[in-house]
Design a binder for these strands. Structure first.
Lengths: 255, 255
DNA sequence: CGCAGCTTTGACCAAACTCAACCACGGTGG
DNA sequence: CCACCGTGGTTGAGTTTGGTCAAAGCTGCG
């Protein structure tokens, strides 16, 4: 079942901004108690927006902040020293960024905005305090970390064991379903702001081969992309091809 | 700096077993307070051992337990419906298993023992209680989840963007360094209980090509494997080839 | 001995990569 | 108004890496 929610732009500001958070109204997210909300609010240091194509977190620097994506699309990536890039995963509203840096002296991964992105910022050094004051929120953060790892696990299976067509099928379904779940679908279309280089880097394929594979599946009428929007024409065929079936997902915590 | 610690077999039993935990003596792990230790102990429901080659967690069933590896080597994996298998990562003493299942209705991944493995078992349904009673331990569990995700991130870069020789180089260094850190090295050798099928499945290569690549690096005298033990002969060459440099690691939490 | 599991090798094949154009489209500035 | 440019998509030709198939060693064991 798909619900459509209004597109978001900037997080609310002023006193008690989280009370008026439109993202949190989305039923994809777990409700929180007032007490938890006050704590999240106090942990929040402000907002930030990043233009399309600009870095959210530089790959080689430890980020001084943690973020929750409020609106827009971004991705996590790593590059090898000769420039080969691997996209580790895509980030949508509600995704929490920067946890890993907490536990390592940088050198984790970079984050880049695909569309314009707005973020809620949190003070990294107060993370422990959050766990301490509201263990429930700590539990939620662990939940988010575990979910993200599961997504990377899936991508690893893709890069390691699926052929080009299977990879593309699986990625299209994955992105569609994630956006749909957040109510970002509009009559069967979801925003698809990626270029073929993004797809190639996410799937571990070359740009040219990605193009040819994309083309082939499009000519088979399995999906359609038009003016930056994606429509899945044959969800069943794509799921079967990619051997990838999204599990029914519970409500997600939102920090 | 490498320290050698005695090989472990079974976790201690009887009253207050964690007091006599030999794994926890290892300086690779963070110290805990007595209070925390008592809580971990109460969370612990017993021990289990699994023979080499046997499943620790079945791929398609949600595990009723959480585990910490006490001794031995294991791996996490996923298989596609036609049998292709991808190893997601290797597990060594101190690694915490089963977190992801907590947050999804099964269908995550399987775990299989490579050598004989002993485990400390924990009651999954009491995880939240642990967070609640000792937020510090919750924080530690998040630490472990984040560290594991970083390892999967690295593997994804490998499968997506490295060629066969680079993959092998990176895997050998990674496994050597992890074992070394736990004091499992003996005069420059670490146990290497994997067969070439394991390596192939971890790297996303075919068995035959893995063999040829392994052979090539061995003939270049970059490493040596003898009777199930691995020695790195040219660490610098392997690190450079794999474009992979282990960061200096802090002490790890141990649940 | 004979079998099972693992490794090794060679021959051949194909998926994916690289290179090199070319095309479409939306600015932008003369 | 249109030539020019930059970005991103498309296509073909030729190459390479890695996959597949098949067979032969090697080791340990009942």
């Amino acid at each position: 079942m798909t619900l459509d929610y209004p597109a978001l732009s900037h997080p609310p500001t002023g006193p008690n901004p989280c009370d008026r958070c439109l993202l949190r109204c989305n039923p994809a997210f777990l409700p929180v108690t007032t007490e938890e909300l006050r704590l999240i609010e106090s942990f929040r240091t402000g907002t930030r927006s990043v233009e399309a194509g600009r870095p959210v977190i530089e790959e080689d620097r430890a980020s001084p902040q943690l973020y929750t994506v409020y609106s827009g699309w971004a991705f996590r990536y790593k590059t090898l020293s000769d420039g080969r890039r691997q996209i580790l995963g895509f980030l949508l509203p509600g995704d929490f960024i920067g946890l890993q840096d907490e536990f390592a002296d940088s050198h984790t991964h970079g984050v880049e905005a695909v569309t314009g992105v707005t973020l809620c910022c949190f003070a990294r050094e107060r993370l422990w305090e959050l766990f301490h004051a509201q263990p429930k929120l700590g539990y939620h953060i662990t939940w988010l970390a575990a979910r993200e790892e599961k997504m990377v696990d899936d991508s690893l299976v893709t890069a390691g064991r699926r052929n080009a067509a299977e990879r593309v099928a699986m990625l299209l379904m994955h992105l569609y379903r994630r956006a749909e779940r957040l109510g970002m679908a509009r009559e069967g279309w979801v925003q698809f702001p990626f270029n073929q280089q993004h797809i190639a880097d996410a799937l571990g394929l070359s740009l040219v081969h990605t193009n040819k594979t994309l083309r082939r599946l499009q000519q088979l009428r399995l999906y359609k992309i038009d003016a930056g929007w994606l429509r899945i024409l044959e969800p069943h065929a794509l799921e079967t091809l990619g051997d990838y079936f999204e599990r029914p997902l519970q409500a997600t915590p939102l920090i």
